[in-house]
């Protein structure tokens, strides 16, 4: 075989390999292209539009915006005697949700996952049952919760029928300012537990059996194994669950909108709901800019939380 032929043959092969590769890349780009274009138009445009709006006043109808610089942010945070106190009250309620909801979700979902992991029969059925709140969550379910929590609802009826009438809420669980926010937190947790439980379950199933056997050989009982071996091993999952739930508690508001609309009075008003009110429930007042500014404040808070969480994850894992 001539040397030239030897050198030429691989070159021809490379070209033929390169061609499909570049062709594949082009195909890939073409597949991704529409999504990128859509993101640029629907995503970047709306984000940019919303950010610009946070520096203006507008009611959604008039042809022009009025630029006000940082006034919207100042009004919400401290300056306006009308908006700042409402935002402070909503921030306090949001803080309660942010502390309670993630903590309760972890407290419920981890033990639930541990128990589910031990069950040998009907595990998939039980997993589906516990996942049900996630797939059924939505406006209809929140309405159902409302009926359950009414003065003549199922919870009061149940309490009455088991001789715990003194615990009944004559005004309903959402009608009493002392029970409204805790009840909303419980409903929120009910919606958050399924995903958290699944994440924990995935974590538990990936733990090396030998680690657990070693703990067993060392004399660790069920409680000790869970507390000192499994719990530290699933800490990254706890961090993820906490972060997801913190974000949901900070920005989510649809449950509150449907079930209480911030009431009774203003006792369950949260920041997300306040932003929604400023945007859509102000009888066409030019407060869309304020709503947008509050949205960006929430975004900044979520970003800080994410960075803290990232830091915590890095140092622990």
């Amino acid at each position: 075989m001539a040397p030239g032929a030897v050198t030429e043959a691989p070159a021809a092969g490379e070209t033929s390999r390169r061609r499909p590769r570049s062709y594949e890349a082009l195909t890939g780009y073409l597949f991704v292209g529409p999504a990128v274009v859509l993101f640029c138009v629907m995503g970047l445009y709306t984000v940019g539009y919303g950010f610009a709006l946070s520096f203006a006043t507008w009611n959604g109808f008039t042809p022009n915006w009025k630029w006000v610089g940082l006034d919207n942010y100042a009004d919400l945070l401290w300056r306006s005697p009308v908006y700042a106190p409402r935002v402070r009250n909503a921030a306090l309620n949001t803080l309660w949700v942010m502390i309670s909801a993630p903590a309760l979700t972890v407290a419920v979902s981890f033990p639930l996952a541990v128990l589910l992991n031990r069950v040998r029969r009907f595990q998939s059925v039980l997993r589906s049952v516990y996942f049900l709140p996630y797939v059924t969550s939505g406006v209809a379910v929140f309405f159902a919760w409302q009926y359950i929590l009414q003065p003549d609802g199922a919870i009061n009826a149940l309490l009455g029928s088991v001789g715990l009438g003194s615990l009944q809420q004559p005004q309903g669980w959402l009608g009493n300012p002392s029970t409204a926010l805790p009840t909303m937190i419980v409903v929120t947790v009910w919606g958050l537990v399924p995903v958290a439980m699944l994440l924990y379950l995935t974590g538990l199933q990936s733990i090396d059996r030998s680690v657990l056997e070693a703990a067993e050989l060392d004399g660790a009982g069920w409680w000790r194994t869970n507390a000192s071996v499994i719990w530290p091993l699933v800490r990254p999952i706890t961090a993820v669950v906490t972060l997801l739930n913190l974000r949901e508690s900070l920005q989510g508001f649809q449950t509150f909108l449907v079930m209480t609309n911030g009431g009774p009075g203003d006792h369950t008003n949260v920041l997300g709901l306040e932003a929604y009110r400023l945007a859509f429930l102000k009888q066409l007042a030019p407060t869309l800019g304020l709503a947008s500014a509050l949205g960006w404040i929430l975004f900044a808070a979520a970003l800080v939380l994410a960075l803290i969480n990232l830091r915590a994850l890095r140092s622990r894992t």
């Binding site: 009414q150 003065p151 003549d152 004559p170 005004q171 959402l174 009608g175 209480t260 009431g263």
Partner: peptide, 20 residues
């Protein structure tokens, strides 16, 4: 009426129509 503070206008009217 019990729970009036948790009812929308329509819900309150419905409650009245239902004899509550």
């Amino acid at each position: 009426m019990p729970g009036a503070q948790s009812l929308t206008i329509d819900e309150a009217d419905q409650a009245f129509a239902q004899g509550k």
